Amino acid sequence: MSKHAKNWILGIIGLVLGLLWLFPFYLIITNSFKTPKGIFSSVIGLPVGGTFGNYTQAWAALDFIRSLFNSLTITIVSVVLICLASAMAAYAIQRNHSKISNVILMLFVAAMLIPFQSVMIPLTTIFGKVQMLNIPGLIFMYLGFGASLSIFLYQGAIAGIPEALDEAATIEGAGPGRIFFTIILPMLNPMTVTVAVLNIVWIWNDYLLPSLVLPQSGYTIPLQTFFFFGQFTKQWNLALAGLMLGILPVVVFYFFAQRWIIKSVTDGSVK
């Protein structure tokens, strides 16, 4: 088979896979403009007489401004704390060559294997006793659950940074804190972007943990969307419009941050 034919086959396969990946988004977008009758009569078809009425109703039902503020607060604060604390912990573990450091790293790795469902009841019970079933308590939980994978990723990245840089900075009179924040942390930008994206996707879309922790005044967008599904009725048109409203902030974030994301990934691949 010629190289030209192989390129054509690979292109067709890529196109088919791309269409399959985009198909769920097509369903969400088209059905968010339909009436309930229109959805059940034709799920795949284009909306007939589409209207933005679903979006205005979903906006009001979601209490979107408050829900968006809660989601943004929880996600931004949690991700910043996870990145900063995990990078510092990974730096201390990697640069401290001892058996204790290896044991601590293995404990963090082992913690990734513990399913959340096995600890959610005692966790919420303990936090309830200390009056921490609120947004700050949820952020603290995210820091604990997100640290294991983040430390593991940061530790591997720091292992590739020569210790000679630390030694040279120490000779110049820099302390551990200054070495970390002025030398090590900037070199971790590609990994920081990776860790941030992974945690943003997880925290922004999380439903189970916030549903156990947050009072109604602190509900995020995923929690508010659940109210479209009642015991006897399911408002799919409003739910899909609400999902689109929930996806939109992430799309806007990527649109404005793609230059830094691509740059960080490129820098990491070059290194």
Score class of each variant (00 low, 15 high):
Y154L: 12
V270N: 01
A164I: 14
S269R: 05
L165D: 12
N70Y: 07
Q224K: 12
F255E: 08
G49C: 05
A92F: 00
M88N: 02
I9A: 13
Y26H: 08
Q216P: 00
L46T: 11
G146N: 00
M187G: 11
A60G: 03
Y142V: 02
I179D: 04
I203S: 07
N96P: 11
A5E: 09
I100Y: 15
P186R: 04
A90T: 01
G146R: 04
N237I: 01
T233Q: 13
A159P: 03
I203A: 06
S67F: 11
I126C: 01
M106I: 09
G38P: 01
A111P: 08
V201N: 09
Q131T: 12
K234C: 06
G177Q: 11
K129A: 02
S42C: 00
V195Q: 04
F52M: 06
N189G: 11
Y55C: 09
P36M: 02
F25N: 09
L212S: 03
K34Y: 06
S71K: 06
S150L: 10
F64S: 09
T182S: 15
H4E: 02
A111G: 06
P47D: 12
I9E: 08
T192K: 01
M88F: 09
V252A: 12
L84N: 10
F181H: 02
K234V: 08
A239K: 05
I82P: 12
F228P: 10
T192M: 03
M112L: 07
L84K: 12
G49Q: 04
L107I: 01
A5H: 11
I179V: 11
N54K: 02
N70R: 11
G45H: 13
W260I: 08
S2L: 00
L243Y: 08
K99N: 07
D267G: 02
I203G: 10
L123G: 03
I44E: 10
L245C: 04
I76A: 13
T35G: 04
T35N: 07
S150Q: 05
P176M: 00
T220A: 11
G11E: 00
N7H: 05
W202I: 05
F255Q: 14
V251P: 08
F180H: 05
E167A: 14
F228I: 13
P122I: 03
K263L: 12
S101P: 06
V193P: 14
F40T: 03
A61F: 10
I44L: 15
N134D: 15
I29R: 02
A90C: 01
Q155M: 13
F23A: 12
G53T: 10
V130F: 07
N70C: 07
V201Y: 10
A157L: 14
G128R: 12
A147Q: 14
G173A: 13
I139T: 14
V265W: 11
R259C: 03
S264N: 07
P162N: 07
T125D: 14
F227Q: 09
I135Y: 13
M88G: 05
I39V: 08
P136F: 05
M244L: 11
S86Y: 00
L240P: 04
F140Y: 10
I13R: 05
R66T: 15
V195S: 07
L113I: 15
T182R: 15
T194R: 02
P36E: 03
W21R: 09
F69E: 04
L123I: 00
L72V: 15
T220Q: 00
I100R: 15
L223Y: 06
T30A: 03
V119K: 14
N102K: 01
L208Y: 04
V119F: 14
L149P: 02
M187D: 06
S98L: 03
T194H: 09
L165G: 06
K271L: 01
